[in-house]
Computed example of a mutant assay.
Amino acid sequence: MYLLILYKFSEISVHLVPKLSSCLYNGRLEILPSKDWDLESIHSMEVLDIIRKHVSTVTGLKSNPSVNESWATTHIRKFWLARVYVASILYGYFLKSVSLRYSLERSLSLSDHHGHRTGPSFHDRYRCGSQDAMFGGKSDIQSVWHNLIRQEEEIEDLKCYVMGFHPGSFQRCAKLRSKEAVQLVECHSHALFGNVKSGLSHHDDFILTSFSSLRRLVLEAVAFGSFLWETEDYIDNVYKLKDHEVV
């Protein structure tokens, strides 16, 4: 599964960011080249609009920043950065899944334009999901999603469709389907950030980096999540993967 994801990145001429310690120069983390355009090219314009909002929310960087704003530096906790990276993988995974479901829902809506529905739509069933926690209990990262999600009466476009999910349903839909996918994300995150166990330590590492590098990491994570959904779906049709059950 991991090799297929790497292959998909190679198709857009993007190398995954190596272990962060190897990207530190004089105590500053810089990821070059940015490859932002390449990482954005895999998404449709509708999905890309949502992703740019996500990037702006988690990094604090404007959608169209100036050069000075992009290269401005900030100190960030390594633990928090790791959490944002994993959360962005799940967000990319979620967007890939929900965009396909949206296309199906829209097709059904168009075909049923002159008729009446006999039951709840896919979107209705999604919005009635349980309150499963994506990160297990109360987590600081959940506040990242709180401002992204609100309810809408009607589905006008993909953005409204996605934002119609309340936090509980979003967390459930972003859950990785297979145990193999969970292990893959854990191993990849560990390889990138090292052994990051707790964000409560007074000795937690702080990293000096630019907002441009933060944007690069988030865009990579979202693309990783999208590719993960595709490869997981492909492999599951050939070799039955183990279901990931959350207790």
Rank of each mutant, 00 (worst) to 15 (best):
K138Q: 10
G137P: 03
V55E: 01
D112C: 13
S97I: 00
V247N: 06
C128M: 11
R101T: 02
G92Y: 02
S97M: 03
G225W: 09
P167K: 08
S178T: 03
H54I: 06
H114D: 12
S143R: 15
L208F: 05
S189Q: 12
I89R: 12
I76Q: 14
C23W: 03
F94M: 01
R83Y: 05
N26F: 12
L148V: 14
A82M: 13
Y91P: 03
L158W: 09
S107V: 05
M134C: 02
K35S: 10
K242D: 05
G164Q: 02
E46D: 15
H54L: 08
V222C: 06
C160K: 12
S213E: 01
I42S: 09
I141T: 05
G137H: 07
F122Y: 11
G199L: 04
I42G: 11
M163P: 00
L39C: 11
V86G: 05
H203F: 08
T209Q: 08
R177C: 00
L16C: 14
L200H: 13
N64T: 15
Y126S: 13
D112V: 05
V182D: 11
S10N: 07
E105I: 04
F170L: 04
H123L: 09
D36K: 10
S97W: 02
S63L: 04
W229C: 10
R106E: 13
E11H: 02
H203D: 08
Y85H: 14
C173N: 05
E180N: 04
S22Y: 07
F224S: 09
L200W: 11
I155Q: 11
L32S: 14
F9R: 11
D205I: 13
F94K: 02
S226Y: 12
T73N: 13
A223W: 04
F165W: 12
H15S: 13
S212E: 14
Y91L: 08
N195L: 09
L100S: 15
L3A: 13
V86D: 03
L81F: 00
E230L: 09
A87F: 01
Y85K: 07
